[in-house]
Every structure is written in structure tokens, then in C-alpha cells.
Simulated scan of single mutants.
Amino acid sequence: MLEDMRLFATIVEQTSLNKAAERLNLSQPALSRRLARLEAELEVDLFRRIGKRLELTAAGQVTYEFALELRRFHASYLKKLNAYKSSEAHIATIGASLTTLQTTLPGLITAMTEKHPNLEIKAITGKSHEIAELVKDRKVDFGIVASSAIADLAITSLPLFDDHLMLVLPRTHIILERTHLEMTDLNGLPMILFAPGTWYRTLTDEILKKYNLKPDVRMEIDSFEAIIRLLSACRAGTLLPKSYLREQILIDNDLFVVRIKELEETKRTTSLIHGDPAWLAPSTRYLIEETAAYFERGSSRRKES
């Protein structure tokens, strides 16, 4: 009954069998058979079929209200049951974008595994909306995305830190002979940029378009590390998120960061997202709290410096 009510509620909420089948990872014919079997067992019609559109009958409305109550009851039960489970996680699966994977996760994973030697962390990459779906479908424990909020009532967003772009150049670059650089200096500047398709590259393109700038783009690469290593050899600059630019990276690659006011205004909030707290195991809630504390400490250190 619980599974039948879950399928029925999904059909109602998705407003079509096709959308519901896709969400439930079932074929449309299989979902139709499950619905027909449920109606046969209940001996009522749950929907009126108007062309391809489904409209709830009065019996269907009562059944949907029951399905919602059953969902809430089941979530409450799981929440109480989780209280008896261990708060020590052995495996954590985190969803993150490719840029987040390179900028944010290395330090977090190092800190987590140092504190919890038995913890195994897995990461799944994707765009922000894809990570949100993984969170909703409970395929990841939580996600870290470059967004201040996800427009979905089933997802909770917890802001972690603000990020912005910074101009990075080899210390020997001739342009650094000037005492002051402005946005217009990016026009025609040889640059290596991250490959298209991420929030970071989108932000880069937006700022270049806003100021009508056309740098000389020599390469587009989907690895921050590769970009960093190639800057001196190509005598090129790049725009990188502040969160990636650790002091040791700059020292090891003989690079210099140029502060430009307009770039510092390209703020982007990175947030942790998770699903219904009732579905979170105590170990997951603990890791979420640990993650928030880790970034809060990092933010405090940056303000002090």
C-alpha cells in the first residue's frame, strides 16, 4: 500500500503519467498497469481521462489526501527510527559541480577524513539542477552548489560562503609593469579560460560582455590545475574563483593576483543543499553541521587576514 500511494501521489503531483514515469524511473506502460491495479483494488476510478490529461475524481482527491498523510506518517516514523541508528557515518556521498569539486571539496574532504579516519567520501558531479534532483531522490546525502537557493520546497539551502572572480597573471607578465590595472586592460589580453558549461565560465562570459571586453582566448580547459600550470608557459592570464586560489598554489607557480573592483563585485554564493530533514540519518545531519562549521571557520580566517 505504501508504494502504491507513493506512485499515485507522484502521478498527481507530476500531472501526467509520462512525467511521473520518468520521475519514478519506470516505463509509462508499467506505471499505467500499476495505476489500473490500484483502481481495481480500491474499486473506484481515481482519475477522469480527458484526452492525455488526467483529472482527479472525488475518490481520487480523498485518496491523494490519504497518500499525503501516509507520506507524513512514514517520514515521522523514519525520523524516530533514525534516532536509534549510529551517528558515526562510514560512507558519505556528496553531489557537486565540476568547479566545486576542484575548488571546494579537496580541503573539505581532507578535513573530514582527518577527523574521521574511517569515513569514506564519494562524490557525484553534475550541474546545480542535476545535483538538486540527486538530493531529492536521495541518491546523495547532500549537495554543494554555486547557488544561494534552489527554487524547490523539497530542498533546504544553507549558504556556505561567497565567491568572486580574480585576475591571475604570471609574475613576469609585462602588463604588471603598470602600477594599476582596470577592466579595460583585459581587452585583447591573452587568456586561458575554463571550458564552457559551468557557473564559473558563465560568470566570466557575463562580466566580459557587460564591459564589452574581448580578450585573446588562447585555450579553454576544464581543469583549474592545468590552467594554473600553463599560464607562465603561454604568458597568459586567467580569471579564477577566489575559493581556489590558495597562497601555496600562487607561490608554487610564480603567479600574482590582481585586485580589480569590478571583478570583486561578481559575487556568487555557494550553498549546501539537502532534502527533508525527516529523511536525514543522524550521521548525515552531523556531517552537514560539520561542513557548515568548516566553511564558517574558513570565512573567519579570510576576514582576519
Results as ranks from 00 to 15, higher is better:
A83H: 09
D45G: 11
E69C: 05
L68I: 12
A59G: 02
L38A: 09
T63W: 02
L31A: 05
L81Q: 15
Y77V: 14
V44P: 04
G60R: 01
R34C: 07
L38G: 06
S27D: 11
N18W: 01
S27L: 04
Q28P: 03
N25K: 04
L81Y: 12
N25H: 12
L78S: 10
K52I: 11
L46H: 02
T63F: 06
I50P: 01
L81C: 06
V62E: 14
A67D: 04
K80V: 08
L81D: 14
E39A: 09
K80E: 14
L78T: 10
A59T: 08
Y84Q: 12
A58M: 05
F73M: 09
A36C: 05
E41L: 10
A67R: 00
L68C: 11
K80W: 07
E22W: 01
L42F: 04
Q28F: 00
A40Q: 14
L26D: 00
K79C: 10
Y77L: 15
E55I: 15
R23G: 00
F73N: 09
L81M: 13
L24H: 00
Y84V: 12
N82R: 07
S27T: 15
Q61P: 01
S32P: 02
L54F: 08
L31E: 01
S32Y: 05
K19N: 13
G60K: 03
A21K: 00
L70A: 10
A58C: 02
R37Q: 15
A30E: 08
A67W: 02
R23L: 04
K19V: 04
I50G: 03
F47T: 08
E65A: 13
A59V: 06
L42M: 13
E39F: 07
L31I: 08
S27N: 11
L31M: 07
K80P: 00
E69I: 05
R23P: 00
A75K: 03
T57Y: 07
E39G: 07
E55A: 13
Q61I: 13
R53C: 04
F66G: 02
R48V: 15
L42V: 09
L46K: 01
A58Q: 12
A75W: 04
L78A: 07
Y84D: 12
L24K: 00
L31F: 05
A36R: 13
Q61K: 12
L35S: 09
K52C: 06
E41C: 04
L68Y: 03
